[in-house]
Design a protein around this nucleic acid. Structure first.
Length: 826
RNA sequence: GGGCAAGUGGUGGAAUGGCAUACACGUUGGACUUAAAAUCCAAUGACCGUAAGGUCGUGUGGGUUCGACUCCCACCUUGCCCACCA
């Protein structure tokens, strides 16, 4: 049978069918076995698999197949993150139901996945929009509600005044609604928040325990949490006549600069702005300024280097450390949701304050000088001096270092009662309300006083209704059947919450549902969750490094806190795979540079595509797609195919090392070394070198000659061919099943035990030693592996070529790295 | 601005203190063929040399070391993430 694409297609279908009917990849619930849980981030049903998916899943499949052959009980499931905006947009555009649109795409993608030969346990298939899944979203929400971890708060949304609907950020294009083209407005509405900040310290501290996560992902999470140590300072607020009217707190990480405060500035959204200007001269001016801020999106307003704008409030603050009275301002560069929403401004030592002071002609006073400058003058400065230095004009703190002053001043302020050391985080609570249809309905109803109550758990799921209209405000509000909740006991009707949940909620716990995906009575059984968790190997794109992984970690910690799971962290080991590029650019539909996996499978089959993807680059690196290079993978598989077809002969002989000649020994050592290396490389994600090792072995096996007079050689050949086939199973599973069968086996290669290697067979009698003179290669000698250093030295010095370079000069040193290298220093 | 990652032949990459460029793609030459494809064999960093062989060579400059792609310092370039976070 020749190695043609026609044959390959038949073989791939044959074994996919075999695996399915023999339930080869179904995970066992036998908790006494050693488990291994491999998971890829479940995809959004976008319609078609792209090469990034193929790469992601191929990597996972190699790991799953490897662990299975090592004897582990492997859980390797797949599902879909199937709620979300695109389905709803498509519904509006094409007048189809989001469910129909989504189901169609899911089915198409599952069919594609099956052609890749991925070893998923399809009995655990799940998707977010099934009632059996999202009912547990609602259940979790209610548990959080009971624990006081959800609350309502006003928050700004993008409002399209023509379509009468809330827009997601990505639906706002140049400040206009994506469909109506109308100018988008900001509106404040009540929305649901989850108190992820209740777990901030755990989320931060436990990053240190994640030894098998990439450092950069942990760094990104740390930065996102953004812990900073500083001081909260209390100011009295005075009117123009010097009468105290209120108090204000600011947060700073630079208490060493407090003697340089020249003004205090509030975020425009700060409620005190409106309060304090009421009835004063500047009132209208300030209110207009605040209103202009609302129009601008936060993204437009923020950004380093942007010109800063502000207005004086006409009231003043008294600096508690020196009694100095400074003006209060509001400015666009201050953020309401960080610190206290108010900042003490020190133009001399903060670049933002410096630029602002220059623009509005505010004074600048220096309180820290560089160590090598006797006096730093404000008028000489062209930028703020932000480095550490020596304290000046700071009363009793003059002369000490500014770093030391941070501690000294904050201690002193605490004693005086004028300030307090505080810790501030960048991490904010998670806004989960979406004024959307295609998501999990928030299981809440409101009593006549407007107080929220959770829907009783027995009433779950709160199902998505079908009698909805799109493009007329929040879709769930258009549903007659949904809008009102009827109390099952009293028959009274109440208004339902019509917002749905952020889809990040769905993806924050799906990996636990897989452990017991068909459970209809509870979210999952604790036994199953505790057996399978944590996920041993999680694989996905770096784009999820922050939000998805942080939310998942939060859910796991929440589940632990209510006794549902024992693990503190969901993902033991994380691999972030690199992107697939074509001509140095990310493949995308808009650029028209997409390589369709279906086309590659048609031409080469799944095995060649998988092998190329794994061989072309290490998994974490970017991968440059190359239509030509895939020929190499095809050729390699073809050579193994014909090697087995042409040269495998059943024999009654055994592999007998006592009969080995040098060729036998060499190839036997090589196969043992390959078993060792391929196993190690797979565990270290070095699939490319694992494959190259198999290619080298294959090249040598091709040259290895059997001899009818020495029948043990055929036995050795058979042994090596079998081992190569097994080592290749994770990479090219279909062809290996076929070859395994050709090699006379009736069992399934995918469930065969991974080969073991013989440590003794790796030992060498003779080694080649590199001989250097002054670090430069001059000769190589073959010597006994256990040669003594003195004996080796003599051999080295006797080499003609070495003699020329030593040239009678005295030998200063002789360095011998056993079995590898000798260096003669003259 | 901050953080992280990377920089090696014509190309993807290998080597993480010890033979730089494994393996593969491509290219060139050869075998097979009426021919082509497929397949197989050989060559393939640059320069000098008929050859043996030599010199140079892993972004740039310095350092440590018997020995540096690898470690240290400074810089350049590219990519990614965060970014007016007080």
């Amino acid at each position: 049978m020749p190695y043609t694409i026609h044959e390959i297609k038949k073989i791939e279908q044959k074994w996919q069918e075999y695996w399915r009917t023999h339930k080869v990849f179904e995970a066992s619930s036998d908790t006494s076995r050693e488990k291994y849980y491999v998971l890829e981030m479940y995809p959004y049903p976008s319609g078609k698999l792209h090469m990034g998916h193929v790469r992601n899943y191929t990597i996972g499949d190699v790991i799953a197949r490897f662990r299975r052959m090592q004897g582990c009980n492997v859980l390797y499931p797949m599902g879909f993150d199937s709620f979300g905006l695109p389905a709803e947009n498509a519904a509006i555009k094409n007048n189809v139901h989001p469910r129909a649109w989504t189901d169609q795409r899911m089915n198409d993608m599952v069919a594609q996945m099956k052609t890749l030969g991925l070893s998923y346990d399809w009995t655990r298939f799940l998707y977010s929009h099934s009632e059996e899944y999202y009912r547990w979203n609602q259940w979790i929400f209610i548990q959080m509600f009971k624990q006081g971890l959800v609350y309502r708060k006003k928050a700004l949304v993008n409002w399209d005044p023509v379509d009468q609907t809330v827009l997601a950020n990505e639906q706002v294009i140049d400040g206009k609604g994506w469909r109506s083209g109308a100018e988008v407005e900001k509106r404040e509405i009540d929305q649901w928040f989850i108190k992820i900040t209740a777990f901030t310290e755990d989320l931060l501290a436990d990053l240190d325990k994640l030894e098998n996560w990439p450092e950069r992902v942990k760094t990104m999470q740390r930065n996102w949490i953004g812990k900073s140590h500083g001081t909260t300072i209390n100011f009295d607020v005075l009117d123009a006549g010097g009468n105290k009217i209120d108090e204000l707190q600011t947060f700073t990480t630079r208490p060493d600069t407090v003697f340089g405060i020249e003004y205090v500035v509030l975020a425009p959204e700060h409620p005190k702005c409106r309060e304090w200007v009421k009835g004063r001269d500047h009132e209208q001016d300030v209110l207009d300024f605040i209103a202009s801020m609302d129009k601008e999106s936060l993204i437009d307003r923020m950004g380093e280097g942007r010109e800063k704008n502000g207005r004086p409030l006409g009231v003043f603050a008294r600096n508690p450390v020196n009694g100095k009275v400074v003006p209060l301002w509001t400015a666009d560069y201050v953020l309401m949701d960080y610190g206290t929403g108010a900042v003490m401004a020190v133009p001399a030592h903060d670049q933002r304050d410096y630029l602002f002071a220059k623009k509005y002609n505010l004074p600048i006073s220096v309180v820290i000088r560089p160590e090598d400058v006797a006096e730093l003058k404000a008028e000489d400065m062209t930028a703020a001096y932000v480095e550490p230095g020596i304290m000046v004009h700071s009363e009793q703190f003059d002369g000490i270092g500014s770093t030391e002053a941070i501690t000294k001043i904050s201690e002193w302020m605490e004693e005086q009662g004028t300030g307090e050391r505080t810790i501030t985080y960048r991490l904010k609570d998670w806004l989960i309300s979406r004024q959307r249809y295609w998501g999990t309905p928030i299981p809440i109803y409101y009593d006549n006083d407007g107080n929220p109550h959770p829907v009783p758990e027995s009433e779950l799921p709160v199902k998505l209704p079908d009698d909805i209209e799109f493009g007329k405000g929040n879709p769930l509000q258009t549903s007659e059947s949904f809008r009102y909740y009827t109390d099952p006991d009293t028959g009274k009707q109440y208004r339902r919450e019509t917002d749905t949940m952020d889809t990040f909620f769905d993806s924050s716990w799906y990996y636990i549902r897989y452990t017991d995906a068909q459970n209809r009575n509870e979210i999952f059984s604790k036994d199953m969750a505790n057996y399978w968790l944590p996920v041993d190997q999680y694989i996905g794109g770096i784009e999820h490094a922050i939000l998805h992984l942080l939310y998942s970690r939060f859910f796991t910690k929440f589940f632990k806190s209510i006794g549902l799971v024992e693990t503190e962290e969901p993902f033991f080991r994380l691999l972030t795979q690199g992107m697939v590029l074509l001509h140095g650019e990310v493949m995308s539909k808009s650029k028209g540079n997409v390589v369709d996996p279906d086309d590659i499978i048609k031409k080469y089959g799944a095995d060649s595509m998988r092998l190329f993807i794994l061989f072309a680059a290490p998994p974490e690196d970017q991968l440059e797609w190359n239509d030509q290079a895939i020929d190499g993978a095809w050729k390699f598989l073809g050579r193994i195919w014909s090697l087995v077809e042409k040269r495998y002969q059943p024999t009654d002989e055994f592999v007998d090392p006592s009969k080995f000649d040098k060729d036998d020994k060499d190839i036997f050592r090589e196969i043992n070394a390959a078993v060792k290396k391929v196993g190690e490389d797979i565990q270290n994600y070095k699939f490319n070198t694992a494959i190259s090792c198999l290619m080298i072995l294959m090249n040598n096996l091709d040259k290895y000659e059997v001899d009818e007079a020495k029948p043990h050689k055929q036995a050795l050949f058979n042994h090596i061919a079998q081992t190569v086939v097994l080592l290749l199973v994770p990479f090219a599973p279909h062809m290996c099943e076929e070859l395994w069968e050709k090699l006379g086996h009736s069992d399934c290669a995918a469930l065969t035990t991974w080969p073991e290697f013989d440590e003794k067979a790796l030992e060498l009698d003779e080694v080649e030693v590199i001989v250097q003179v002054n670090g430069k290669l001059r000769a190589r000698v073959t010597v006994a592996a256990d040669i003594a250093e003195d004996a080796l030295k003599e051999i080295c010095l006797a080499q003609e070529h070495v003699k020329t370079f030593v040239d009678g000069k005295p030998i200063r040193r002789f360095i011998y790295v056993p079995g590898k290298l000798a260096n003669i220093v003259v």
